[in-house]
């Protein structure tokens, strides 16, 4: 990541903070002052789903190539995924407390993030239970993909059975209340900049494990030559 991009990112993020707190109007009916949390909570939740997809992609790549580097990538995307899932759950339940009156309501989206947390948790308990490296990588990748194929069912089944408390119409452009232009500008730029920020974080972690892998391979080769 070049210097220029870093500067753009920092300026953009600062603008978003200012925009969210000062520039964009509040949604008057349901959310009131808590409209602001929306610009930060939604990107975090979106990011944890994104990392889940990335992890599934790298798991697939690992099974295809048997390259342990991909396993390491899948692992770090799951790590970041669980981190952001926890963040989204915490910010979400604070929000839920003030708007709906309780920390947890089993609304479809809360259910989905809960399931994601369960999957992430299961993934890491599986990893910690297998010592042998290649076996751990294979089992974890298979589990990731198995969890991945069940996701469409949650999307399909859960909303039909639990009714939603989420302010869908506010986000959904076809709904009753449209986002105002300023809100929309702040929301989408926040979404984009957050995604870039988190992907940058991911990129850096990727470089880190890649370098570690190179070092280890080097040491291994040296041992083999002896």
């Amino acid at each position: 990541m070049s210097k220029l991009w870093k500067i753009i990112l920092y300026i953009g993020l600062s603008l978003i903070i200012i925009g969210a707190f000062v520039w964009a109007p509040l949604e008057p009916k349901i959310l009131k002052e808590y409209t602001r949390i929306f610009y930060f909570h939604v990107p975090v939740a979106w990011i944890c789903v994104l990392f889940f997809l990335i992890a599934a992609y790298y798991s697939f790549q690992f099974l295809r190539t048997k390259d342990l580097l991909y396993d390491a990538y899948a692992k770090i995307s799951n790590e970041l995924g669980i981190l952001f899932a926890i963040l989204a759950t915490v910010t979400g339940s604070i929000w839920a407390k003030v708007t709906w009156g309780s920390f947890w309501n089993w609304d479809p989206r809360e259910t989905s993030i809960f399931i994601l947390l369960l999957i992430y948790g299961a993934y890491f308990s599986l990893r910690s239970a297998v010592e042998q490296e290649d076996r751990r990588a294979r089992l974890a990748a298979v589990y990731s993909l198995l969890a991945f194929v069940t996701v469409p069912f949650f999307v399909f089944v859960v909303p039909r059975i639990y009714f939603s408390l989420h302010p869908d119409p506010v986000i959904n452009t076809q709904g009753k209340i449209h986002l105002e232009l300023r809100q929309r500008v702040v929301f989408f730029s926040s979404l984009i900049f957050h995604t870039v920020l988190y992907l940058w974080l991911f990129q850096m972690r990727k470089t880190q494990v890649k370098l570690q892998m190179i070092l280890r391979l080097y040491k291994e080769n040296k041992m083999l030559e002896e």
Partner: peptide, 14 residues
């Protein structure tokens, strides 16, 4: 053939 168990090289270039 090379086989490594965690950090231990069991087989070296067989």
């Amino acid at each position: 053939i090379v086989k490594r168990f965690v950090h231990f090289l069991v087989l070296k270039n067989i």
